[in-house]
Simulated scan of single mutants.
Amino acid sequence: MNLEVETEPQGPWTAAKKPACAPGTEGSPHPRLRLHRAFHSQFLAADRDVIVYLPPGYDEHAERAYPVFYMHDGQNLFDPSTSFAGRTWQVREHADAAIEAGEVEPLVIVGIYNTGDNRLGEYTHERDWQRGGGDAAKYGRLITEELMPWVAQRYRVRSDRASTGLGGSSLGGLVTLFLGLRLPQHFGRLAVMSPSVWWNHKSILGYLNEKAPEIWERPRVWLDVGEQEGKRTEQDVELLARRLKANGWKPGENLHVEKAPEGRHDEDSWAARMRPMLRFLFPAP
């Protein structure tokens, strides 16, 4: 499936004039997916695309503003033609179903495409002497200082921290936790899925211990792992869960820890946890 759009310059953006195609419809446009090409940032060199999901009823309720959920690896969320191995998280389908069932508050979802070779750099909070990385703070500035204001100007979203979420998997889960701790004034809901806790000798755990006492209100955290991802990954997530609890997060209130018996480190497994994750982070009022 190709994502066909017409574009025109708008500042650092090239904005979509046509909606993106819905997953599985082979060129049939879906009116609630909007693709925006070639976002250029002053903080990072690589341009990236952004795709925006609008909830059912968005166009019919012009007076309503919505919570907003920013997700990493945006090319894997909706479109098989851009996703890893042709598998997506089926975000539109799961969000639509959960909203229409009354389980989840209608929300806007912003998928930020990764930049290929620099994904590791942008999704890691400090440099590893062997692997490099360490540009996550700049990536956070891109999101909070450039992307979020633009989204707020173009779409009807609420901008308070309680209405703003951030989420991703693997290194995307790692950078979600880092930015949630670094920028708690912006993000009140975090989806930390199969996080790469191992990065640079598990240094994210020390960062958690350092930053948690400074956070006046704990963000709501969904933390998960698949039991088929390997013992090390499972143990790392268990350790992270214990550290979160020790630093004031309360299971059932602002923390949910999910272990998926059949879960693997892949798009199908994250897709299977998409709907329950949305139910916890964005429950219907």
Rank of each mutant, 00 (worst) to 15 (best):
S169R: 00
D160M: 12
I143L: 09
G165L: 11
L179W: 04
T164M: 04
E146P: 00
W150F: 11
G173F: 03
G180T: 03
E146W: 06
G168A: 07
S170Y: 05
V157C: 06
I143M: 07
L174I: 09
G173K: 02
G165Q: 09
T176V: 15
R161K: 10
F178G: 00
V157Y: 01
F178S: 00
R156V: 11
L166K: 03
R154V: 12
A162E: 13
L181N: 04
G172N: 03
W150S: 09
V151Q: 03
A162S: 11
R154L: 15
S163W: 09
G172E: 04
D160I: 15
I143S: 00
R154K: 10
S169K: 02
L147W: 02
G180F: 01
R158I: 12
L179T: 05
G180W: 01
L179Y: 07
T164H: 01
Y155S: 10
S159K: 15
P149A: 13
D160C: 13
E145I: 08
L166M: 14
V175P: 00
L171K: 10
V175F: 03
G167M: 06
R161Y: 15
L179H: 05
G173T: 06
G172W: 00
A162Q: 13
G168P: 00
R154I: 13
R156M: 11
G172Q: 03
R161S: 14
R161N: 12
G180V: 03
L142F: 14
D160E: 12
R156K: 08
E146C: 06
E145Y: 12
I143F: 06
G167L: 06
S163R: 07
L177S: 04
F178M: 05
T144V: 12
L171S: 10
D160Q: 14
L147N: 04
Q153A: 13
E146L: 10
